[in-house]
């Protein structure tokens, strides 16, 4: 490419329209104003996972998000602006951009700590509560399976049962819990695949 062509292409590139992208501030500020959030919300961010730790996976609903049109730009009163910036600095993680409600803002940090590699599609489609429960289920399942393996190793040391490698020898409660967790994760995966 000669110099003239290079200059031309650079100019054309600079003149090209780029899609307008909403800033994180606009999104968080919109939530602050829509839900009339106050400073007390910041204290809720200190203990984000409390109400979820009790959630029972067996009865948990798979929550999907509805598409929200955030404003292109936002101007807000000083109090709202300060709260918005405080939330942004407190919940400083890439998932905050996909939060669509105060609950999701609160959960986003925990979710990011658990699994920082969730894709944008998943984060846009599912409520963070469902994703958090799913991540926790996966983690708990891993732990339980590890436990089961350890137990089998101990019980079956030298016995023929170890070689079977199935879960029939596990206690019923453990087996039931693993089933519950497996079915919950499968439900989330199925829903994801169906899209």
């Amino acid at each position: 490419m000669d110099l003239l062509q290079k200059i031309k292409s650079e100019r054309a590139q600079s003149k090209k329209k780029r899609p307008f992208k909403r800033r994180l501030f606009d999104k968080v500020n919109d939530l602050v104003r829509t839900y009339s959030l106050e400073e007390s919300f910041l204290s809720k961010l200190e203990v984000p996972e409390d109400y979820l730790s009790e959630a029972n996976i067996e009865f948990a609903q798979l929550r999907k998000k509805r598409p929200i049109e955030f404003p292109l730009f936002s101007l807000s009163a000083e109090e709202e602006y300060r709260l918005t910036t405080a939330i942004m600095s407190k919940v400083n993680n890439p998932y905050l951009e996909f939060a669509q409600s105060p609950d999701e803002i609160a959960i986003s940090k925990t979710l990011f700590d658990l699994n920082p590699s969730l894709g944008a599609d998943t984060l846009e489609r599912y409520h963070f509560e469902t994703l958090l429960l799913c991540e926790r289920a996966k983690k708990e399942m891993e732990d339980l399976l590890q436990q089961a393996r350890d137990r089998r190793r101990k019980e079956g040391r030298g016995s023929a049962k170890e070689s079977l490698g199935d879960g029939r020898t596990l206690p019923d409660s453990l087996e039931k819990r693993i089933d519950q967790l497996q079915s919950f994760v499968a439900r989330v995966d199925d829903l994801e695949k169906s899209h």
Partner: peptide, 10 residues
Amino acid sequence: LPLLYDPAIE
């Protein structure tokens, strides 16, 4: 009027 804020204004 009370000034409205966004990061650029601040």
